[in-house]
Design a protein around this nucleic acid. Sequence first.
DNA 1: ACTGTCGGGACCGCCCGTTCCT
DNA 2: AGGAACGGGCGGTCCCGACAGT
Lengths: 228, 228, 228, 228
Amino acid sequence: MARQERAIRTRNEILKAAATVFNEFGYDAATIAETLIRAQVTRGALYFHFRSKEDLARGVLDQAVTLEGVEPHPFVLQEWVDASMLLAYRLPREPVLSAALRLSVDPKARQLFGTRWPDWIELNVQLLVAAKDHGELLPHVDPIEVGRIVVGAWTGVELINEGVGTGRDLVTDIAALMDLLLPNIAVPGILAKLDTSPERTAKLVTTLPEEPPGGPGLSDSPLVESHR
Amino acid sequence: MARQERAIRTRNEILKAAATVFNEFGYDAATIAETLIRAQVTRGALYFHFRSKEDLARGVLDQAVTLEGVEPHPFVLQEWVDASMLLAYRLPREPVLSAALRLSVDPKARQLFGTRWPDWIELNVQLLVAAKDHGELLPHVDPIEVGRIVVGAWTGVELINEGVGTGRDLVTDIAALMDLLLPNIAVPGILAKLDTSPERTAKLVTTLPEEPPGGPGLSDSPLVESHR
Amino acid sequence: MARQERAIRTRNEILKAAATVFNEFGYDAATIAETLIRAQVTRGALYFHFRSKEDLARGVLDQAVTLEGVEPHPFVLQEWVDASMLLAYRLPREPVLSAALRLSVDPKARQLFGTRWPDWIELNVQLLVAAKDHGELLPHVDPIEVGRIVVGAWTGVELINEGVGTGRDLVTDIAALMDLLLPNIAVPGILAKLDTSPERTAKLVTTLPEEPPGGPGLSDSPLVESHR
Amino acid sequence: MARQERAIRTRNEILKAAATVFNEFGYDAATIAETLIRAQVTRGALYFHFRSKEDLARGVLDQAVTLEGVEPHPFVLQEWVDASMLLAYRLPREPVLSAALRLSVDPKARQLFGTRWPDWIELNVQLLVAAKDHGELLPHVDPIEVGRIVVGAWTGVELINEGVGTGRDLVTDIAALMDLLLPNIAVPGILAKLDTSPERTAKLVTTLPEEPPGGPGLSDSPLVESHR
DNA sequence: ACTGTCGGGACCGCCCGTTCCT
DNA sequence: AGGAACGGGCGGTCCCGACAGT
C-alpha cells in the first residue's frame, strides 16, 4: 500500500513536470528529456506510468475542467463570475491547468486529443441558463451564445496576459473583461451587486483545500460535474 | 524583370504554403518537407529564398497587421468595429493572417520571434484614443485597457471558433462579441448608430483590391502604420 | 511438495511461452513482455525462475535433442529413419523443439549459446556407424559426412516447409527427402524394406508418453544420450 | 553525372555494409549505427538512400536470385548442378547473397518481406522440367517436389556449414549433397558424366565478370530470369 | 541567377532487459 | 512472487549546407 502511495506521488510529479514543459514549449517542442529532468525521475519510471508522450498529454488534459472552490450564492451570476475569477487565480499557479489550455490551443495536440472547450463552454452555459431562470439576465441574452463568446474571450485574455508579459495579474485582466461584459448581460438590479474585485477572489481561494503532497487534481476530478 | 517576377511569385507561393503548414501543425511540428510539397518547389528553391525555418516564420509574421480595407467614417468607433469585422472576414481566408495569429500563440515561436500583439493592441488603442477625443466613448473607458482586453477577446473567440468546429462563420462570432462589448464602451447616441452587421462587412470587402497573383500582403506591408 | 509442483508447472508455462515467442520473432525481436503476456505471469515470477533472457533461451535449448519414441528395430537404418520422421512429426507440434532449431539458426543466439547441431549430428553419426557395422550401408558411405549433410538437409527442408507456407505436413517433406537420399546410402537388400511412410510415424507416435501437465521435455532430458 | 555516380557508389557501399551486418546479427539485432560505421557514411546519407531499416533489407533482398555464370551445356542437369555449385562458391564471398538467405530464415524479416524461396524453387523447377524433357531424369522424379526438397537441403547445408564452423568450404559440402542426391535423380547414362568437382566450379567462376567498383549485383539484376 | 541532388549531424520518442524493495 | 523504477540505446526524422548543373 505504502508502495502504491509513492507510485501515485511519482505519477503526479511527472504529470506536473510534463505540464510545465508543455506550457513552455507547446506539445511538439516539448521533450520528454526535459520532463525527466524537472520531475527528477528516470526514463523507466516515466515509461512505467505513461506509455507515450500522447499519454502524458492526455493525463494533463484529464484534470482541467473544474468548478472547485465556487461556493453557492443567492445570485447565480455571482457564482458565474466567481468561476471565472477563481480560474484566473488558479491557472497561472497550477501548471496542469495552464497546460490544458495551452494544449487546447496547440494545433498538433488538437488533432490528437481534441480540446476541453466544449466542456468549459457547457459549464458556463449551465450557469447562465440557471441565471436566466432566476431572472438575472437581460432578456435579449442567449446563454449558449454568450457562453461560447465568454469562454473565447477569457481564453484570449489569458493568452495575451501571459504573452505580452507586462506582469499584470491575470485576475486583474479577467476582472476588466467581466466589467466590460456584465452591463450587457445582467439586469441592472443584479449588476450593481455583483462583485468582481480581486479581494473577493482572494477570499474564495482560502476555501480551497490545502494542496496535498502530489499537487492538486489528484482526486478523481469531478470534471464538468455541476455543483448544484 | 520577368525573371524577378517569377522569383517573387515563387517566394509568395512558398510563404503561403508555409503559412498553411504552420497553421495546421504549429511551429515546431511543421516540417519543411511538407511545405515543399504544398508549394511544389524543391529544397534548393526554398533555401534560396529563405535561409531557415525561422526565416520562413518571420516572413509570415511580417505581413500580419493591417488596417487595409477600413474606410474613413464620421464615427471613429465605426472604423474600429470595421477593423475587427474585416479581419474576422479575412483571417479564415488568408493563410498568412491566421498563421501569424497561430505563431503568436505558439510558445516556441514566441520565444523566437515575439508576437504581433503589441502591434495589434497599439492599433486598437490609437483608434480608441481618437474615438475618445471625438467624445464617442463612455467617460469611464480607458482606451489602453479596453484595447488590450478586446484584442485578447478577439483572439480567443477566433481560436474557439476554429477549434470547436461548429462551422459558424467567424464574422458572426466577432459580431456577437462586439454587440456584447459596445454598450459599455460607446456613448448611447453613437451606440445606436454603429453597424456590426455581416452585410456591412461584406460591402467593405468589395473595396479590397483583387488578390494579386501571389496573394495579398505582397507589398512591403505598411504594417502598423495608421491610416489617418 | 505441492508447492514445488506448482513452481515447476509455472516454470514450464514460461518456457513454453518463451519458446513460441522466440519462434515467432527470433531471439532479439522476442520481448520479455510478450512472453509475460502469453505465460500469464508477472515479471517477478519470470525473473524468479530465469535470471535473464539468455537464461530463458538456454532453458529452451536444453530440451531439444532426443531420440525419445524411437524403438529398437532389426535394421539400424530403420531406427535412423524413424528418428528423423518422429522429429518431423513432433517439431511443428512442440514449441520448445522448433524454438531450439530457430535459435540455432539465429546468428545472435548462435553467438551467445552456440548451436545444438553438433549434438544432432553426433546422434546421427552414431546410428550410421552402427548401421555400417551391421553392413547396412553402401560401401562408399562415410557416416560422418552423411550425418552432417543429412542434418543440414533436414533443417533446411523444415525451414522451407514452414517458410513457404504451402501447408504441407513436415512429415511428408521429410519422407520425400529420405526417399531421395536412401538409395545412395542403404544397400539394396535393406533399402527395399525400409519404411518411410507417414503411417509408420503415426504408429510410433502412439508409443510416446502422454504429455504431462507442463509439457513434454520436463524431465531432465537425457539429451544426446544414445539409447543403445 | 559524376555527381550521380558517386551517389550510386555510396548507395552500394551502404547496401554491402548492411548485408554484412544483417548477416552477423540477424534482422532485428542488426543496428543502423553499425551499418553506418562499416559503410563509413553518416545517418543523413543513409536516410537519403533508404528511408528505413526495412528499406535497407528490401534493398538486399532485391539482388539475391540469379543464374549468373551458369553456361549452356548439353546436359541440362549439368547446368542445374552448376547453378548450385556456383552459388555455393559465391554466397560465402558476397555478403548480399548470404544476407538474403539469412533474412529469408529470420522470422521477423519474414513477416515483413516474405522470402526469396519461391523464386529459388521456381528456378530449380524450371531447370528440372527441362531436364525431364530431355530424358535426363529418372522416370519417378517429380521436378516440383525435388526442386522444393533440394532448395531446402541446399539451404540447410549452408546454414550448418557456416554454423558449425569447421572451416570446410561450402563448395565441398554442396558437392557432397549433390553426390548423395543425383543417383536417385539422374538416369545412369547421364549420371556418370555429371561433374560436381570443385575444379569445375572454379573454372566457371572465371567466366563471371570482374566485380565492378561498387560490388556485384549493381546491375539491374535479371533475377529469376531463366537464361535459356 | 536559380534549382536540385546528395550528404551532415543532431536529437527525440520509444522500448527494453533488469533490479530493488516489499 | 509483485509492483515500481532504472538507464542505456536504437530507429526515425529533421533542418540544413555544399556543390553541380542550367
